[in-house]
Design a binder for these strands. Structure first.
Length: 254
DNA sequence: ATGGTGGCCCGGCCA
């Protein structure tokens, strides 16, 4: 099974690129973030014609997450399964090909002293509760998406330049580690220990060409998935060309 | 280079 995650930064703006990429990469499952689309305008038919079932949790202008699957799509849960529902559309879960798939768009946090940063930390704690509610560590579990957290200093182009900003702070990395203690593994990093492997590059300042990026999109998988994983990749080519998203897809084959 | 880019949707927010 080939599972991918991609923050598309507006599915309306990116639909041609998404279609082309699906044809090229042929994933069985694609988790998308930032569809920025209302429920009623989600292009269900386009994906159906390509052989994918789909489930979308959208709100309009911002956020929005979706799962496409060729291997079944059941037990769909929009929003958190436990606790107060999030007012933003940032999480959708489903069972695909026997695996529990959770697609997330973690809040950005904005600034360390911003209210949004506290919201981000609370959100991550609720994510752990959510995962614990819909799955057990012995299941095939894939929690994936845009986490807006760089797990280690090697996941950013210049740790010194990012001192004091979000994505790299200790509290963020600690709440991420709580998912690890639950039984999830950052499988791309397991397979690729070397630095300078990023999934996001700012549109501004020629960041992509300068190699100024961060690895904030990943697949956290349970042991049973990790043991069967044969390949993990970041598709940098998808960040090139006309009207790219600022994120690249990340893939897992198991 | 008194900004740099690109979504949302038309002034300003968000990433």
């Amino acid at each position: 099974m080939l599972v991918a995650t991609w923050n598309v930064n507006s599915l309306k703006a990116r639909l041609p690129r998404v279609q082309a990429w699906l044809e090229e990469a042929q994933p069985d499952v694609l988790c998308m973030q930032e569809t920025k689309m209302k429920q009623e305008v989600f292009p269900t038919e386009v994906f159906t014609e390509m052989g994918y079932e789909s489930a979308h949790f959208g709100q309009g202008q911002w956020n929005g997450v979706a799962i496409l699957s060729k291997v079944g799509l059941t037990d769909v849960v929009q929003n958190f399964a436990v606790g107060d529902p999030d007012t933003d559309a940032r999480i959708i879960s489903a069972t695909c090909g026997g695996a529990k798939v959770v697609c997330v768009y973690v809040p950005n946090g904005r600034e360390l002293d911003h209210e949004h940063y506290q919201y981000k930390l609370r959100w991550m704690k609720q994510l752990r509760q959510h995962v614990d509610t819909i799955a057990t560590p012995s299941d095939d579990v894939i929690v994936t998406g845009d986490f807006n957290i760089a797990p280690l200093d090697i996941d950013v182009w210049d740790p010194a330049a990012l001192e004091g900003s979000t994505h790299v702070s200790e509290p963020e990395r600690n709440v991420l580690a709580e998912l690890r203690t639950w039984g999830l593994v950052d499988i791309f990093r397991e397979q690729h220990p070397e630095p300078k492997l990023y999934s996001w590059w700012d549109y501004r300042d020629g960041s992509f060409h300068k190699g100024h990026g961060m690895r904030i999109d990943y697949l956290l998988v349970s042991k049973t998935v990790a043991q069967r994983t044969t390949e993990t990749t970041i598709d940098r080519n998808a960040r090139k060309g006309e009207k790219p998203s600022d994120h690249a897809p990340v893939l897992l084959r198991f």
